[in-house]
Design a protein around this nucleic acid. Structure first.
Lengths: 224, 224
DNA sequence: GTGACCGTTATTGTATACAAAGAGAAAAAG
DNA sequence: CTTTTTCTCTTTGTATACAATAACGGTCAC
């Protein structure tokens, strides 16, 4: 990640992305290039550039007549994304097990220690959990040493709907997630690709069902 | 696929892409926006748009200083791409087996019949083979009904180096490819996801080794 | 009142001019 | 002769003006 953000298109990209993640631009909302250009303090040219990237990452969809809208993911869409993520991330875990170095293993352990501390507080520190969780998966991806795999996974994680749901994880889910992370580290230390792949598959599938449960619960509340 | 190609950026995209595939823009060549704008008969704006797309599809890479070059894939890069393609396309085959309809099955059989005819000519009609082969895989992808999976696979197939190698397939490889296609149709007809996935994995892996052999052979000839 | 047609307006697509940033060449210092 | 520095020129980034196109709303015929 660049620290400078020198280019206007980069700034526009970051700003629009965070507007979508935060909900300032809600799902389904039409996007007007000129309006965003104003809000970002740049001209339409870099905004268009940013929109192309966000479209490739599925944050934005375009109608047949080229108008842009904030993506509105159905449950089916999320399920499809999780299926792909399961496949890709399990593959990454296998590759990582075959390639990981001692320094990377140590960094995984550190991330897990931070997660453990965040969970065991009286009020779990969910933002810390999210940051360290992201770091944990990023290290694995790095160890997998496949730039294309990384690029693909980026398309399939961190959609707004998923991020918002993670905020409502209960303590049990947080603890299970940590346990799976620790088992992954064991598998990596033994360089057991089969083991790592299987644990990662279970890890992502559990996360999916946690999402689906939260989603269903939310639906019930809306109905009441 | 749009027939009109109404927009200038679409025309630019198609033209530049075919220049790369045909070798008119060779690997490693630096790309100048203005020069391409001239050759495509449009301004730089749509060319830049097209370059962004081609960059996302890994036809083009950008240096740290934002200059664009035609991607030059190493053997390792190609191997990585084949590994991802194996995983993605096998997954697609499983999903297709669970969802495919009779009309799609029939279209698969038609494609195979065309391939069979193309192969059995005294001089195999390789272009016909390539067209029908692409169609066969496209139908499977359609049956898999996962737009994101389709988008990801697009990033990983049809790189210039692979396409050029396919032109040198020998008769034995062509025949084996057809045989695997026919076995896939059998698996689909029985709706056997495991079978379809396994055959597809074998299909792609064989293709990879055919590529690797051709590559090694070419290296030998260059050395001599 | 309903539906089709047409003009207005909002929005995106393209061209062009200019600004900024880098690479390469030429010149100067060691 | 090598290395460093500066300058120029190529190339990309951004702003703006204008063209094209699609959505919206109103009018007219029935």
């Amino acid at each position: 990640m660049l620290l400078t953000m020198s280019k206007a298109s980069d700034r526009a990209y970051a700003q629009i992305r965070s507007m979508i993640l935060s909900g300032a631009l809600p799902p389904g909302e039409q996007i007007r290039e000129e309006q965003l250009a104003e809000r970002c303090g740049v001209s339409r040219t870099p905004v268009r550039d940013a929109l192309r990237r966000l479209e490739a990452e599925l944050f934005i969809r375009r109608s047949e007549s080229q108008r842009s809208f904030v993506a509105d993911w159905s449950l089916g869409d999320v399920e499809e994304a999780f299926a792909l993520r399961t496949m890709l991330e399990s593959h990454a875990a296998r590759r990582a097990a075959e390639r990981i170095g001692w320094d990377q293993l140590e960094r995984l352990r550190l991330a897990n220690a931070a997660i453990s501390k965040a969970i065991e507080a009286d009020i779990p520190e969910v933002p810390t959990f999210l940051v360290q969780n992201r770091l944990f998966h990023a290290i694995i991806l790095q160890a997998a040493a496949s730039p294309r795999l990384s690029a693909m996974l980026a398309q399939v994680v961190e959609q707004p709907v998923v991020v918002r749901t993670a905020l409502h994880y209960d303590k049990q889910n947080l603890a299970r997630s940590l346990h799976e992370h620790e088992e992954l580290v064991l598998a990596f230390a033994r360089r057991d690709g089969d083991w790592a792949e299987a644990v990662m598959t279970a890890h992502i599938r559990r996360a999916f069902h946690a999402y689906a449960d939260a989603h269903a619960q939310q639906r019930e509340q809306e109905a009441a």
